[in-house]
């Protein structure tokens, strides 16, 4: 089997201790995915596995054998930015840029979750069909991605803009 990373098949590592994060950064040199704690506590290492956001630091590479992984490098490039990437620049949704890849990967999946009607802790009516997008919905759903520079307002604005354009 193989792990499909941004569309390319790669062999799983020999050492089962290797996390998906270390596979990406140290073995594949896809260092867009960041390591902020290696404790599952900051979200900087967020990637998409079969379209769902997960923490690559707490995922063994062996566990994603046969699955598809998308990292920030797979979302867009400087010449062809993903709408969220462009919106993050526009709204200044970062300063140092270190938590950014995790924020953008998480936001990408989050918009899908909202579209699929998945509720959050701040969703008023769990039984309702469809989620009304609000700043607090975005904040709660993005709370697993810490930012120390304090770019929270810009991040939420960027996501809100893309979410609104998507609906429109």
């Amino acid at each position: 089997m193989a792990i499909v990373v941004n569309g390319t098949r790669v062999a799983p590592p020999d050492d089962p201790r290797v996390s998906l994060l270390d596979l990406l950064r140290d073995r594949l040199h896809l260092s867009g995915t960041k390591i902020g704690c290696n404790q599952g506590a900051c979200g900087a290492c967020t990637v998409l596995v079969d379209g769902k956001r997960v923490l690559s630091c707490l995922t063994l590479a062996a566990q994603v054998d046969g699955r598809s992984v998308v990292t920030i490098e797979g979302l867009g490039s400087a010449d062809d930015l993903h709408p969220l990437q462009a919106a993050f620049i526009e709204h200044d949704g970062f300063q140092c840029g270190y938590c950014t890849a995790g924020q953008i990967c998480a936001a990408t999946a989050m918009l899908e979750e909202i579209a699929a009607g998945m509720p959050s802790y701040v969703t008023e009516d769990l039984g309702a069909d469809g989620i009304a997008i609000s700043r607090d919905e975005i904040r709660e759903r993005m709370s697993g991605n810490l930012c120390r520079c304090g770019a929270h307002n810009g991040i939420v604005d960027a996501i809100l803009q893309v979410a609104t354009e998507k609906v429109a």
Partner: peptide, 12 residues
């Protein structure tokens, strides 16, 4: 469940 951890962790 939604009160626990983060969306990423709940997915895992």
């Amino acid at each position: 469940i939604l009160a626990g951890a983060s969306a990423q962790i709940r997915n895992m």
